[in-house]
């Protein structure tokens, strides 16, 4: 995430501009995700469907669906993306 940043700012640099901070945030996210994933071993599930009983089901589902969505949407761009003035061109 930090590699994406290009700073046009002069002066007002915020603590969030520091790549170190960003790295820390990303690290925290990783730790949190790992914790949540393994939390599945410590409570009782009240599931309606068999799939829910898979260890870390919701974590895996969230991750995989997110990737599916992004890849799908990228493919859609091939067919559906047009210039901003597409509808005004004939005028």
């Amino acid at each position: 995430m930090s590699e994406e940043r290009e700073h046009k700012t002069e002066g007002r640099r915020s603590w969030l501009d520091d790549p170190k901070t960003v790295r820390k945030i990303v690290l925290a996210l990783f730790v949190l995700c790992a914790g949540l994933f393994f939390a599945d071993g410590f409570y009782e599930k009240h599931s309606h469907f068999g799939a829910e009983d898979v260890f870390g089901f919701y974590a895996l589902y969230g991750f995989v669906m997110c990737v599916v969505l992004v890849v799908g949407a990228k493919l859609m761009r091939v067919f559906l993306m047009r210039d901003e003035d597409y509808y005004d061109r004939d005028r």
Partner: peptide, 17 residues
């Protein structure tokens, strides 16, 4: 926990992608 798992892993996927 299930809700947090979904949301945080979506965020994880977002950061990685």
């Amino acid at each position: 926990i299930q809700q947090l798992q979904i949301m945080m892993f979506t965020a994880l996927a977002f950061v990685i992608l």
